[in-house]
């Protein structure tokens, strides 16, 4: 990379920390530290909500996924707008008026301390490991393209992020999120322009669409009802609705965001911003991945996008095998390019399948050689494009955007972990009446502590692909159950504390069994968890209620 790109990255890191801290006020009070004194405008909260959800996994993984399969992943977000409408009508005014610091505080008011503690504990367990993955996944990719070690990359992402989160509280997180989302969107738009300019001028837009369409990448909506298929219209709309209701309604990393809004109305508008913008933004990111595919139809792509593995295998004991693959790959690419330029759809498809199959063989070779069974080369597609084809300065901007995505998602989770730890455990169970200064100081310690723990998880998760899979599965089974217990509290007046607690336990158990013994796609786990908790909770409440 050019010195100017490094300068852009360093300038971004310095700016994000200093400006985050400069904008923090009243952080010596608990309300200022965790809720920004309920002072933020709706647009800042809305952009912060979106930034927290847009992690580097989204930026790097989604573009890679679109490169390989096209627009199908958009179906994951189909439930989001409806979820935002439901939440802006229900829990947003509810939490705001209740004056709570965490979503789980409400569960004690409605049920008992046991239910609150269990729900908050589930959040802490899930989010701690998820924070590790949010740091690990981009670190593995960024370390590979910049030639750094994984631990060093984790530290470079984590240290500035922990600094502004610990000292600036949720205000620093929200205001840096606002800047980070602009850095991300500007970077992605720049990439789209460069990609579009990279397509030969003699190839018309119509022919380009025809070629991409032939590969199935433009088939975004799948109306088949198949529970085993991960992304369909139905899994996205129904399963996704429950996931988004749970994520935005019961997850402290999101609830804390809209509790910082000036008023109930501002909080509602902040969520509705996502309802309008999230799907178009996600389409932009997916379109970037599809455009990278088109770009590499006409420009020679590397057989493996992870250049480190490419060099290792090309000079290792299986070099001859790899070299033979490379020659077959070069020939298949040349024939695919010729077919694309001639507009020969059938020949293009045949050669595209050959290119994909040879890449598959190369990836299998990496998996055998490195022992990393989870290795996914698609995650390196976009970063490799950025470092090899973006103009000077824009490469730095895009790498900064990857840092921004990693930091914004991680900072939101870190601040939420600290608030749940201090409000739901430390202040509730251990030190019940201390000064604000005391609670803010231990909150800073908790933030640094969780940050360190996340770094350790990130450094170990990066070597164990299976751990990442376990974490993802875990996230999908606890979300639905949490939603179920909030539904019991908000939608009914007859649910009891005993019903809520054992309903939550039953929901978790059922989803655990479903997740590990059936092939039902994970989006449906959210619906199953919510329904089981609600049904079991109501049944136990009815049975345990004293007869009059």
């Amino acid at each position: 990379m050019h010195a100017i790109d490094w300068l852009v990255i360093v300038a971004y890191l310095v700016w994000i920390v200093t400006d985050g801290l400069r904008r923090s006020h009243r952080t010596n009070e608990v309300a200022g530290y965790f809720l920004a004194g309920r002072s933020l405008p709706w647009w800042a909260v809305g952009l912060s909500v979106m930034a927290t959800q847009l992690s580097a996994i989204t930026l790097v993984g989604t573009t890679g996924q679109a490169y390989a399969t096209g627009f199908r992943f958009i179906q994951f977000y189909l439930g989001l707008p409806l979820a935002m409408i439901i939440l802006s009508l229900t829990v947003v005014p509810f939490f705001h008026r209740a004056g709570v610091y965490t979503a789980y505080e409400y569960l004690e008011r409605r049920f008992d301390v046991r239910t609150r503690t269990l729900a908050s504990l589930l959040f802490l367990l899930g989010r701690t490991f998820s924070l590790g993955v949010v740091l690990a996944a981009p670190s593995v990719v960024i370390s590979s393209i910049l030639g750094w070690s994984v631990p060093l990359t984790v530290i470079i992402i984590a240290v500035p992020m922990v600094l502004y989160t610990a000292f600036g509280g949720v205000q620093a997180v929200a205001w840096t999120d606002v800047k980070q989302i602009f850095v991300i969107v500007t970077g992605v738009c720049a990439a789209v322009v460069v990609l579009a300019l990279g397509i030969p001028s003699e190839v018309s837009i119509g022919r380009t669409l025809d070629l991409v369409g032939a590969t199935g990448r433009l088939r975004a909506i799948d109306f088949r009802f198949d529970l085993r298929e991960t992304y369909t219209f139905w899994s996205g709309l129904i399963g996704g609705l429950f996931l988004m209701l749970s994520y935005f309604g019961c997850d402290q990393s999101q609830v804390q965001r809209y509790l910082t809004a000036k008023s109930v109305e501002e909080a509602r508008h902040s969520l509705l911003l996502s309802a309008y913008v999230k799907i178009p933004l996600q389409l932009l990111i997916l379109a970037t991945g599809v455009l990278v595919f088109v770009f590499y139809v006409f420009q020679p792509p590397p057989m493996l996008f992870n250049r480190v593995h490419d060099r290792e295998i090309a000079s290792g004991p299986r070099a001859a095998e790899y070299d033979a693959l490379q020659r077959r790959f070069d020939a298949a690419f040349a024939e695919r390019k010729t077919a694309a330029e001639a507009g020969d759809r059938n020949a293009f498809l045949d050669h595209d399948r050959r290119v994909a199959a040879i890449r598959g063989e190369a990836v299998a070779l990496v998996r055998e050689a490195t022992g990393d069974r989870q290795y996914a080369d698609v995650n390196y597609v976009f970063p490799t494009f950025v470092t090899t084809h973006m103009p000077i300065g824009l490469t730095g901007l895009l790498i900064a955007a990857m840092f921004a995505a990693a930091m914004s998602a991680a900072a939101g989770e870190l601040s939420a972990l600290a608030s749940a730890t201090i409000i739901d455990f430390y202040r509730r169970h251990f030190v019940k009446s201390a000064t604000d200064a005391h609670y803010v100081n231990v909150s800073k310690l908790a933030t640094v502590g969780w940050g360190l723990f996340a770094c350790v998880v990130a450094m170990s998760a990066s070597n164990q692909g299976s751990l990442i899979e376990v974490v993802n599965r875990y996230g999908s089974f606890f979300y639905g159950s949490l939603l179920g217990v909030f539904m019991l509290g908000i939608l009914t007046t007859t649910a009891t504390a005993v019903g809520a607690f054992y309903g939550l336990v039953a929901g978790m158990a059922v989803v655990l069994v479903v997740a590990f013994t059936t092939s039902i796609a994970f989006l449906w786990h959210n619906l199953i968890g919510a329904v089981v908790v609600f049904a079991v909770g109501m049944a136990i409440s009815r049975a345990s209620r004293p007869h009059s």
Partner: peptide, 30 residues
Amino acid sequence: MEDLSATYVKILLLEAAIILALWLFGRMYS
């Protein structure tokens, strides 16, 4: 509480339009 019914309808219409456009686009070029 402010009545946001018109905003909700606009959001749902926008989503329906995006889904329809994506579906038609996919059918047109596959």
